[in-house]
Nucleic acid binder design. Structure first.
Lengths: 216, 216
DNA sequence: TAGATTGTTAATCGATTAACAATC
DNA sequence: TAGATTGTTAATCGATTAACAATC
């Protein structure tokens, strides 16, 4: 089978892996050594089969009657996700959302280290936001190349999103975490992950609307 | 059919509605009056049938040969999502992520207005973040009741998430936008929408990892 | 009328769940 | 050994896509 035909993993399973990881780290902290699917399923309010299927994509195998070794399982998930070593990232667009992400301390647990921010606004360039330097967008290309940065976080206004994306790719960026509502056009060798807060908000407000309607 | 058995709408369709809305508002701004599924599908890089199915959940009907009337379609989507009138929300937890959301200006397009923030930290209480007041968490209950606030945005540390959730519900909150990694336990009449940035990051980094592996 | 476009019904695909066999 | 738990195969469910009928 040629490598570019390799089958992907179920998207919902990959998205659930961080939930398991968080729980497992907690259990490890409490001194537990092994854990069963039943136990995990209960804590996360899911089915046991789903837990087994999800964990299986990391290549881990459990032992009947015992369950899974927690350290081994944590290692397998971190390896699968590429979270064993933290990866450096550059953020572009130091607006309110960008600033927030710069200050968010939870990404370390997820193998991500935001090194610096970039902006075109001369009033922002040269300042620091949450201890991180805001650099001139002009210097992005050279710095990203020199530091071998592979991840770009996109928090610019939607109307310049595509333009910035193109420049990121030329600078060697291979994966873009897109917080803008724009649909980015990229070559197939570039990874794009859209955050789409508006989709999440659509779920929240439509369900609330249905709920309120049903009670009138 | 009893109202509590009403069939839900396909989740992926609801999550795509904001994408259509954004495009339609843009087309309206350019002076267009009607639009076909083919046109929408092209712009968003999807299939035409999916577009029709998605739009159908709002109850809209198009005209063969012509397409959909843009103002009518915008109205139908906004009505379905409950975005015709903006709804007020309280945010709890004025940390870095919370501050970011307070400053984010895009929520207005999505029918959400964050009125104020709440925190327990005395150094934050009384200050303003992006023009919004930070109030004492103690005053949440009374204010939420008095102002009939239905939406709570949860950006507190994970270990107090459940506790804050319980208090929110007692204060009359009906829908919680949960930015913490905690799995919240709530009665069935309360809407919870989890944002789970770590799931998104898991997708990004696992795909990047696979990509880099395949090239070695 | 002819052709473009909508809307619906059927087929496919992928994810979840159920049933059961394997194993420590 | 018996029983708990894993892992796999089959059945179900939901979403997407394809085929086609309806209509302006």
């Amino acid at each position: 089978m040629p490598t570019d035909t390799v089958k992907g993993f179920p998207i919902p399973s990959v998205r659930r892996l961080p939930l398991y990881l968080r729980l497992l780290r907690e259990l490890r902290g409490e001194g537990h050594d092994s854990v069963s699917c039943t136990r995990i399923a209960e804590s996360l309010d899911q089915g046991t089969v789903q837990v087994r299927k999800d964990l299986a994509i990391t290549g881990i195998v459990g032992r009947p009657k015992v369950g899974y070794q927690i350290p081994e399982l944590i290692d397998a998930i971190e390896t699968f996700l590429g979270w064993k070593n933290t990866r450096d990232a550059f953020l572009v667009g130091a607006g309110s959302l960008g600033s927030a992400l710069l200050g968010y301390e939870g990404f370390g647990d997820s193998g991500l280290n935001i090194v610096a921010a970039f902006d075109t606004n001369p009033e922002k360039v040269g300042t620091r936001i949450h201890e991180k330097e805001v650099l001139d967008w002009e210097s992005f290309h050279d710095l990203a190349h020199r530091m071998h940065i592979l991840i770009g976080i996109l928090t610019v206004p939607a109307d310049v999103a595509q333009e910035v994306t193109n420049a990121m790719i030329l600078a060697g960026i291979r994966a873009i975490w897109n917080y803008t509502p724009a649909k980015l056009e990229v070559p197939p060798t570039i990874v794009v992950e859209d955050v789409r807060l508006s989709s999440s908000l659509a779920m929240l407000s439509s369900r609330l609307t249905r709920l309120l309607e049903s009670q009138r």
